[in-house]
């Protein structure tokens, strides 16, 4: 059964709502949001509250529920 979550872009405060299948991976969720906001998916992580959502886990594994609010956070690398 599909669920709908809200994703907040921490860089500009914009939000989107996304419909997700339980088998969708968190990586796919990040990719969908990053593509929408013209960002590079590999440079971001997704959080729910204080919890980092692991890229390989699925929506079901991560325990995401309908109406959850997630946040897309940049994961910068400096050199």
């Amino acid at each position: 059964m599909e669920i709908e979550v809200t994703i907040r872009n921490a860089e500009n405060g914009s939000v989107l709502n996304m419909e997700l299948d339980p088998n969708t991976t968190i990586e796919d969720v990040i990719e969908g949001a990053a593509e929408f906001w013209h960002k590079e998916a590999g440079a971001y992580v997704l959080r729910r509250g204080k919890k980092l959502l692991k890229g390989q886990s699925t929506v079901a594994d991560a325990g995401l529920k309908n109406e959850d609010v997630l946040e897309l956070i940049p994961d910068p690398e400096g050199g």
Binding site: A10, E11, G13, R47, G49, L52, P76, G79
Partner: peptide, 26 residues
């Protein structure tokens, strides 16, 4: 010559964000 957030530190980072007293943008 290199730096990034440690994966184990992410929850601490998120806690700092939640502790802010204003609605933030990065």
């Amino acid at each position: 010559y290199h730096v990034r957030f440690h994966e184990d530190g992410m929850e601490g980072l998120f806690e700092s964000l939640d502790d802010l007293d204003f609605v933030y943008s990065i």
